[in-house]
Design a protein around this nucleic acid. Structure first.
Length: 563
RNA sequence: GUGCCCAUAGCUCAGUUGGAUAGAGCAACGGCCUUCUAAGCCGUGUGUCCGGGGUUCGAAUCCCUGUGGGCACGCCA
């Protein structure tokens, strides 16, 4: 049975209609006016076109074949047999190919506002997820450098998705996987060492594939300030070990700082090195060996990922005995499921799409359901400045950092831009455009609505009316009714965006809500002399404020009180 | 070459998972401030939904195929 508590008003209207449709059909069948065995899955949806009613159902078209009669006949039969003693339905129409259009008695929409105001910060949230544990791993950038635009997109998407899932009633853990082991760390060490020696006037050779970025030089300069030339005449391996440790500390601190500035707050920072240290990697390897998913070839150990649809098998342990990144990642994913997450979501750049099949294969091999590992791929970000594409490469150190992005564009605009687009499409980020504080920037449109509301509330000197004491049925203007309906949609919008893993739906919703408000603002005056109307509109405006603020909060965007 | 992703208005993109006459923003043009913020509102028009087949009551959406673009194909991560 559906739990009645916490269900949104829109959902309960939808369910009420669904029930009455089913009852009507059964009544018609009892009266031998129609025959069918099984009821098809049908939808009760809010039609795009307002003239098609508040809700519409497609059941007649789906039942036509089985019932051996025309969709319009079936729809008419349902309409004639609908129970409506309580006047819940204003009218029911048969339209188009056999749609049922339901026009509801408008009284239900006036329940929305008191509910929003009572729930306040909690409005929009629901218990849909039943507290199920979900982990979202995102960004997980190499700590050898600074965060770039791709990381920024991942941060905005991952954080918004996490917030959405939380609002939909899931128990969410935000996690950052720190790649502090493996080849790139060795490379990092050699790069640091070369810079350290160079900065002391020595003629050290910089590794070909090393980290050429200026930020590495700065890091080494900072270390030198602390230790001077103490590590100049010392065993190279010890020197590298020390430099790596100090540099990782600094890099990680700056990554944490930048993400915090971007409004992203992680629950867990998980070290890859800890998997090596604790022996979990070799344990996992052994388990896979026992299950016969591993074989040896040319001195290396391979995982049979081809049996899970991968293009080729993948090396787990190199011939030099060092496990690959893939081996560590498998151990990490085993660890995730062992920690009791029902679902695990990874946000990856699309350049990693080749790993999806083998990672899911590894999860299956370990005895877990691969469907519970969802990998959200996002296409890469292309950056434009002065009309030209800015080539970005971490190795060469040529890239715009998250930190610079926040300085230039601002957190709010940047986050809105990243979440606004479908992750499946390339994002052309025009820095000059995003910087512009003009109407071109959609985030201002939404924030402006919030600021306007606050300005109305400030201008009102009396006492805010109480939800239950106001007759809201005076809100009859089209702009008023449509605004209320948009407000009422929030809980279902959140659930829909959360379960489909599509945070970008929420920016659209935010924009539509703001649009509906601006339209209302221009056609209806809130602070009028008519006290009843004024009070009702004050409540409407306050509920809009709460809804807008809650959506912006989900997206990690501030809701300014004045602009 | 093989695999994955993308292709919708002049530009940037939505399109509620298969529904009714495909929508926003920007750009263009015309109107609206003595009023709670004009970073706003109202109006004007634009489509070979990349091409071609198929599935069905119904396709931008699902399947096949062709074209164009991006990405990946390492004992890197």
């Amino acid at each position: 049975m559906e739990e009645e508590v916490g269900m949104s008003i829109v959902t309960s209207m939808r369910e009420k209609i669904r029930l009455r449709v089913i009852e009507a059909l059964m009544r018609a069948r009892d009266a031998k006016k129609i025959s069918y065995r099984q009821l098809p899955e049908f939808v009760v949806e809010v039609p795009r076109d307002k003239t098609h009613g508040d809700f519409a159902a497609n059941i007649a078209m789906l039942l036509a074949k089985e019932a051996k009669t025309s969709p319009r006949n079936i729809a008419q039969l349902i309409a004639d047999n609908m129970q409506n003693e309580d006047g819940f339905l204003e009218k029911v129409e048969v339209a188009g190919a056999g749609f049922l259009n339901f026009f509801l008695n408008t009284s239900w929409i006036y329940e929305v506002l008191p509910k929003v105001i009572a729930e306040d910060q909690r409005y929009g949230t629901s218990a849909y997820g039943n507290g199920e544990k979900i982990q979202v791993e995102f960004v997980s950038a190499n700590p050898t450098g600074l965060l770039h635009m791709g990381n920024a997109r991942g941060a905005a998407l991952g954080d918004a998705l996490s917030s959405l899932l939380e609002a939909a009633g899931y128990d969410v853990t935000r996690e950052f996987y720190i790649n502090d082991a493996g080849n790139q760390i060795d490379n990092f060490g050699r790069s640091l060492e070369a810079r350290y020696l160079q900065l002391h006037g020595q003629d050290a050779l910089f590794p070909e594939d090393g980290y050429h970025g200026e930020d590495i030089v700065d890091t080494v300069k900072n270390i030198i300030e602390q230790v001077q030339d103490k590590y100049l005449n010392i065993d190279s391996e010890l020197r590298r070990e020390f430099l790596i440790q100090k540099a990782l500390e600094e890099k990680l601190a700056s990554i944490r700082y930048d993400l915090a500035r971007f409004g992203v707050d992680y629950d867990v920072w998980f070290s890859e090195q800890s998997l090596h240290d604790s022996g979990i990697i070799s344990q996992t390897l052994q388990e896979l060996q026992e299950k016969d998913y591993i074989y040896e070839k040319e001195g290396a150990l391979w995982f049979k990922s081809t049996i899970f649809g991968d293009e080729k098998d993948e090396v787990m342990v190199r011939s030099n005995g060092i496990p690959t990144y893939f081996a560590a990642d498998i151990a990490y994913h085993r660890n995730k499921f062992e920690r009791g997450f029902n679902q695990v979501i990874n946000i990856w750049g699309a350049d990693h799409h080749g790993h999806v099949a083998r990672m899911k294969g590894a999860v299956t091999a370990l005895g877990y359901n691969a469907d519970n590992l969802q990998i959200m791929l996002m296409q890469l970000v292309r950056l434009y400045r002065d009309g030209d594409i800015v080539r970005m490469s971490k190795r060469s150190g040529q890239y715009i950092t998250l930190s610079e992005l926040i300085d230039e564009v601002g957190k709010d605009a940047a986050r809105y831009f990243f979440v606004m687009r479908n992750p499946d499409s390339h994002l052309d980020f025009d820095l000059d455009l995003a910087k512009e504080e003009s109407a071109e920037n959609p985030v201002y449109y939404v924030q402006y609505a919030h600021a306007r509301i606050n300005s109305i509330i400030k201008a009102f000197t009396g006492e805010m009316p109480c939800g239950n004491e106001v007759d809201l049925s005076v809100l009859k203007e089209q702009a008023e009714v449509e605004l209320i309906r948009k407000i009422a949609d929030l809980p279902d919008e959140i659930i829909g965006a959360a379960i489909s893993r599509e945070p970008h739906r929420m920016t659209r919703y935010a924009h539509e809500l703001a649009s509906q408000f601006h339209s209302f603002y221009n056609s209806c005056r809130v602070l009028t002399d008519d006290q009843d109307l004024r009070n009702a509109r004050l409540l409407l405006v306050d509920a809009t404020r709460i809804t807008l603020r809650n959506v912006l909060e989900l997206l990690g965007i501030s809701a300014p009180e004045r602009m």
